[in-house]
């Protein structure tokens, strides 16, 4: 048994144990924290499977933003689950066994795990992405070139989904119920603790600079607009957790956020339209600099990644602010 197999199996053992514990726990606070652990371990698994960009995203999203959102909702609602009646368990178990059995039967047809000669690897598109991209686009991180250039349409679609979901959350939570007078008092905020206040103030610029590093370095290493956006937003989430929502809204007013959410999508589409005006196809970055297509590709990818970063950061921050704002108004 190779080290690869051994490490995979150990990580899966931790994941399955965590998942079982999550299913059994009735305390939702604990279940949420275990979900964060589940995300962290799956990020390690992604690193082991060479998906460094994915691991980065999973660590930032699953462990950071997702956990904070779940905790925010737990603060608004009830953190204890009712006992699941026994008569619900058996049909669910039956369905799951049936579906699982079918899937186990189906995966027999897949090639061996980790083999090098699978249809995925043998497909001609592999050569395009791994070898020709070096001449066509000229950036080492092929994940970035596929994301922003070869499959630019696809990524635009994903960004529009994020935009739509963000707008929907804002619409659902925008009209807060009228605050009850006797509950209006100054909240105890973490900023009253000196250590937390000082450390978070020191950390804040580093988090934001790191987000920019991730954004601009996405061509050469793991990173890009999605990760950068989430990290940028998490800086403001930290600020809001420590200094309260009003403090964070002074730094990043709601009106600015509401402008930033569509700005990213418009910038992305704008790059595509600019390409068309310059005589290329939609999102064909070569047209940005016909003399040297590589320069055009670099510029196009950077613009598009920035656009992704703006919308993702604004949506994540706005979503967190609206959950947190709900709490103040109740």
């Amino acid at each position: 048994m190779s080290t690869f197999v051994l490490m995979n199996v150990s990580l899966f053992a931790i994941l399955i144990a965590t998942a079982l514990a999550i299913t059994r726990l009735r305390a939702l606070y604990e279940a949420t924290m275990l979900t964060a652990l589940f995300s962290l371990v799956s990020a390690s698994l992604f690193v082991l499977l060479d998906a460094v960009d994915v691991a980065f995203t999973e660590a930032a999203v699953g462990v950071g933003i997702s956990t904070v959102l779940f905790l925010g909702v737990l603060a608004l609602t009830r953190s204890r689950e009712a006992v699941t009646p026994r008569h619900r368990l058996w049909p669910a178990g039956f369905v799951v066994l049936l579906a699982g059995g079918t899937l186990i039967y189906a995966v027999q047809d897949l090639p061996s795990f980790g083999a090098a000669d699978t249809p995925v690897q043998a497909h001609p598109v592999t050569e395009t992405y791994l070898e020709e991209s070096q001449h066509d686009i000229g950036i080492p991180n092929t994940v970035t070139s596929v994301l922003a250039s070869y499959r630019g349409y696809d990524t635009l679609g994903e960004l529009v989904v994020i935009f739509t979901a963000g707008v929907a959350v804002l619409m659902l939570l925008a009209h807060a119920p009228r605050p009850r007078e006797h509950l209006v008092h100054r909240e105890l905020i973490l900023a009253d603790y000196r250590i937390v206040r000082v450390i978070s103030k020191i950390l804040m610029p580093f988090i934001l600079v790191f987000a920019f590093y991730v954004l601009f370095h996405g061509d050469y290493g793991p990173g890009g607009g999605f990760q950068a956006g989430v990290i940028f937003a998490s800086g403001f989430v930290l600020y809001a957790l420590v200094f309260g929502l009003d403090g964070a809204r002074q730094v990043l007013p709601q009106s600015v956020l509401l402008w930033l959410i569509p700005l990213g999508v418009l910038l992305y589409v704008g790059v595509g339209v600019a390409n068309m005006l310059l005589g290329g196809a939609f999102l064909d970055y070569n047209s940005l600099n016909p003399g040297d297509p590589e320069v055009g590709q670099h510029a196009g990818i950077l613009l598009v990644e920035t656009a992704i970063g703006i919308t993702v950061a604004a949506v994540m921050a706005a979503v967190f602010f609206s959950f947190a704002g709900r709490r103040l108004s109740r």
Binding site: A51, V54, V61, S66, E158, V161, M316
Partner: peptide, 15 residues
């Protein structure tokens, strides 16, 4: 390619 599809799916998933 799977990395690209999944990293966008993660962010769409949280949204």
């Amino acid at each position: 390619l799977p990395h690209v599809l999944i990293l966008t799916a993660i962010v769409v998933g949280i949204a």
